[in-house]
């Protein structure tokens, strides 16, 4: 596998990328390192993992992080209800051998595998997406470090489970909280920013193929300018695509003030942003070069 294969694999899955992104993905894979992706919301951080899984034709295992995420939800848990039932049932069978009982009670049958355990017990290396890592607390981070460096999980009742294959790990974050140096040391770092005009236009055209060429151009230009405005929540590519899809579905072939005003809610999700944009819309449209038809 080389750099070009990765690039064309990503492209073939409809992910428009640049050299920097494909180099990061390529190196993360060849060096067997986790890839830590940071960047603003809605620029396709999570998408990379999805596309990678498709391109490599392997499973995508996703662990969504949140505050208070613990090992019960990230690694494994015992299925207590079934264990209790099993105990009740074994009463009748007069199983006198406690060791045998123990080994049955704490066997694979009653083990609920959560994402991390799932990821290391696959035959073919899956893509493990640890999404929004900055939402989980520090304890979980240090815990993850252990798995990332040794690729084994210890379950007291069973023993240590070695990874069958080493997953391709993608960790994403929004910089809500700075991740620790220790974690960063084990990862390659990739920053994805809002796309340049050309790249965004290409993405719009690819993801919304039915769109009018003129409209695509205007939408992209508008979004590029909009991101320079002072906003509480800057719209990402996801918003551009939503907007493009919506307008294309209504068979518009150009932008005008009325259309923009009535559909602002698709791209801006903050009341104050909408309000401010409405007020400065004429100015913004002038910059974009859209003339309103009267």
């Amino acid at each position: 596998m080389n750099l070009d294969t990765i690039k064309s694999l990503l492209q073939s899955q409809g992910y428009i990328t640049d050299d920097y992104v494909s180099m990061s993905v390529f190196l993360a894979m060849t060096l067997n390192k986790a890839l830590l992706i940071e960047g603003p919301a809605g620029v396709g951080k999570t998408e990379i993992a999805k596309v990678m899984a498709k391109a490599l034709d392997t499973n995508l295992i996703r662990l969504q992080c949140y505050e208070g995420l613990d090992s019960n939800h990230a690694i494994y848990e015992w299925n207590y209800q079934q264990q209790l039932l099993f105990l009740k049932m074994s009463e009748n069978q007069e199983l006198s051998n406690t060791n045998l009982l123990e080994s049955q009670l704490f066997s694979d049958k009653f083990l609920l595998k959560r994402p991390l355990l799932q990821a290391i017990s696959q035959e073919k290396a899956p893509v493990l997406l640890i999404d929004e890592m900055d939402r989980a607390d520090e304890e979980f981070e240090s815990f993850l470090l252990e798995i990332l460096s040794d690729w084994q999980i210890t379950i007291p009742e069973i023993g240590t489970i070695q990874a069958k294959s080493i997953p391709h790990v993608i960790i994403t974050g929004n910089r809500n909280r700075e991740l620790s140096e220790a974690l960063r040391r084990r990862c390659l770092y990739l920053w994805i920013d809002y796309p340049e005009f050309d790249k965004e236009l290409e993405i719009v055209k690819q993801k919304v193929p039915q769109i009018d060429a003129q409209l695509a151009l205007q939408i992209t230009k508008f979004m590029q300018h909009l991101r320079h405005e002072k906003l509480n929540k800057v719209p990402g590519i996801a918003e551009t695509l939503d907007w493009a899809t919506a307008l294309a579905a209504m068979h518009f072939d150009h932008l005008d003030k009325e259309i923009i005003e009535s559909t602002l809610g698709v791209i801006l999700k903050d009341w104050q942003d909408i309000r401010n944009t409405q007020l400065s819309l004429s100015e913004l449209m002038e910059k974009v070069g859209v003339t309103s038809r009267l």
Partner: peptide, 28 residues
């Protein structure tokens, strides 16, 4: 190691080092 896996062009050399060395946004 990374350098052994890429085509030896100037651009690739730069990109590979840019992928490997920075660890946070400021570094980048």
């Amino acid at each position: 190691l990374a350098l052994t896996h890429i085509e030896p062009t100037k651009q690739n050399f730069y990109l590979a080092l840019r992928c490997v060395f920075p660890q946070n946004f400021k570094n980048l």
